[in-house]
Design a protein around this nucleic acid. Structure first.
Lengths: 233, 233, 233, 233
DNA sequence: CATGAATGAGGGTTCATTCAT
DNA sequence: AATGAATGAACCCTCATTCAT
């Protein structure tokens, strides 16, 4: 990363305004908000279980609301999916971020991040689909994640623990790739992914001094589908 | 078991009588076989390009056969997909196997396997989907692959190049994981997966002496979805 | 099953004689064509009765075909509607054209055209909707109609029967306008439109010598929604 | 008149007492009346712009009231539409009536009526739709209009300017017919309808002495959808 | 009474699979 | 055996109307 802008990770948008609620205007709002929450909750479960292709009716049914209500809150199935994913993504990142900041040892923070990610996101089909398709549910999410991972990377690098030349993009890719492995195998071979994680992390250690292959220049810089590394060294 | 006919698809028909058809039965057979081949060929291309969700019509169109013919040969879209994948999987494994046997250096054989896999197979959307979903198109394929990879593993191990405790399943998982990375990123960031491959391979080197986490016992031994490690030490 | 090769080949191959089997290719085609005709027929009735907004399912039901069949023949409801309208429009125009050519007296040809149009097209809701919306079901239809009407116009003009300055567009507009009147009133007041027709036609007679108001120039020449007059006088 | 409360409570309460509402009933009433007016106003605009098929939400939005309020005042979308149309119809007729009474020349009064109608009302999509569909928004409206038009007709007739045998119904139909023409063409060919109007009016002049076709007797006297001519000779 | 969230019956369209020719 | 037309259950989404607050 260029030394100029040591961007602190963008904080996730405040999900709800926890301020006091004037009853007059909020009376209905509370009910609607409950419905909205129910939809997101149900959609989260259903999308996680069955992926992004589930019937919208299934979500409506599980939410306990009608189709119209669902479409009032989310004008499109994709909007709902995006909202759910962004939420879960952000929630997870926030947690991970806090955990990392609470961890003294840089390497432990890095491994802890992977551990938590893979433990937490493993079963979410839609989330992993989103990883595979676009790298993250949204550009903002990707940026938040990249900033956070870059933080972890820098800490490890400064502590002389991380292999030289490892980019943020490498770490992002690694986490997304392992997520898919967890998704695919944790039912039949629970925990086996931990071995792969260990192997990869050991490959990331500073004792590996061989230079990594230079990435070729991107063919279409505008259509980047995965998080770009912040152009470091 | 999904595979109905265990008969190897590598059967070369070699019908040398194109001129006269006294044996009408043979003629039909040859025609049918040609259709079947055309379907598999077209399906291979289409599935690779667009994944397992393409419209069956597209396959029929590109095969030059009607829907009925397609469904005569493959009672289900999934059957066709399985057949195609099995074929491509087998073909790829055979090539990789030969290449590995022709390579002296065990480590080079291992890395060559990964290189070849990721270069040639990872662009096949349906194949990667299958890899992610079930580990292999069929049990037989999985066994073939496991045996081959175990061979590579053993060679490296005997040569003292491979990290102690690395199982065949670990390597299988790694290849599947990297395949997905290639699939997801090679368009936008061509070649970047090579960095991840290098990192992982370095984590597999014998100089990494930390023990890998023991895999937990499988929860449901009957529903194994990914290749089991051949119970190595 | 591949073991089905016991089946007796009922036909000799004979795929090289294209002359002998006209029905081979047409056999299915005839059936499909019958279905297509049934769909057009049913759609014609339903669109005429209830306008262009009817449920596609209703058309499928009345055609005696499934939804898929309908959509195989017409990729869109609008395509079906357009086809039906174009057909009816053309059919009507052809008939009117012939009738006009068979009529000696130019004025009688003109009035006959209006009579026939209004008698024939009166009840067709979709057709009249199309008049109101775009002037004609398609550009080609409009051109055909304009050419035909221009013929009538010229004949009357040359015979000194038509008011000076009357354009083709005037006549087109008149017919479309009267169509809507018929549509709206013929149920409750059958035949009353004939009085209006007579009045309008009398206003078209050559004895009316007052000049007609000049049309303002079109605001957007590209977005003409109604047939342009062929730039006469 | 079907309109229930013709007596508009012109009470200007101007509720300036936000703290206490002693005249709760009056205040409510005034508020409700204001809402009702806002709805009618907004609906008028929206229906005119987009026709009778607009989403009710759009009307509620532009009225600044909620759906519930809208449906409290008008139990059905059609009720609202009818109310709006009746209002606009009446308003237009009143204006036209006054203008006609202020015009000395009978023929000028007649043509002025058409001019005004087509210039001002024909842009109202819902109004023209209603004109085409049922002749008028309500029986009462139709009667008012018929009476007015009959007045015009009689004046012209008495002055020897109007063609013999022209009925009120003929004139009504003519105005409806031309309204649709304006609606359909004035965007693309502004003013062209004036030519058609002139033609029709010339056909109405007394110099046309040919008798008009006798109207057939109504088939269903109970279901008359268009204004009957007031049994004029 | 006002509000606007909730409802759910359709509406247009797709596609894996079957069936008549 | 081959063909491709036919099938119809789903799918995503809209909107007139109702109802809890």
């Amino acid at each position: 990363m260029t030394s100029a802008d040591q961007s602190t990770p963008t904080h996730p948008p405040a999900t709800q305004s926890p301020a006091a609620q004037p009853p007059a205007k909020r009376a209905r709002r509370a009910d609607a908000e409950r419905n909205r929450a129910a939809i997101i909750e149900a959609a989260g479960v259903v999308f996680a279980e069955r992926g992004g292709t589930v019937d919208v009716r299934e979500i409506a049914r599980r939410s306990g609301v009608g189709m119209g209500t669902l479409y009032r809150h989310f004008p499109t199935k994709d909007d709902l999916l995006a909202t759910v994913l962004e939420r879960e993504f952000t929630c997870w990142l926030t947690t991970a971020h806090r955990a990392a900041e609470a961890t003294e040892d840089p390497w432990e923070a890095l491994t802890g991040f992977f551990e938590q990610t893979l433990t937490h996101q493993a079963r979410n089909r839609a989330l992993v689909e989103s990883y595979a398709a676009t790298g993250a549910p949204s550009r903002a999410c990707a940026q938040y994640r990249d900033a956070f991972i870059d933080e972890l990377r820098t800490r490890c690098l400064n502590a002389g623990l991380l292999r030289a030349g490892v980019t943020t993009a490498d770490l992002v890719l690694l986490s997304s790739s392992l997520s898919q492995v967890v998704q695919a195998t944790d039912d039949s071979h629970p925990g086996q992914w931990r071995r792969l994680l260990r192997i990869s992390l050991d490959g990331l250690r500073a004792r590996n001094t061989e230079p990594l292959p230079e990435p070729e220049p991107d063919p279409e810089p505008g259509s980047a589908r995965h998080a770009d590394a912040p152009a470091d060294d």
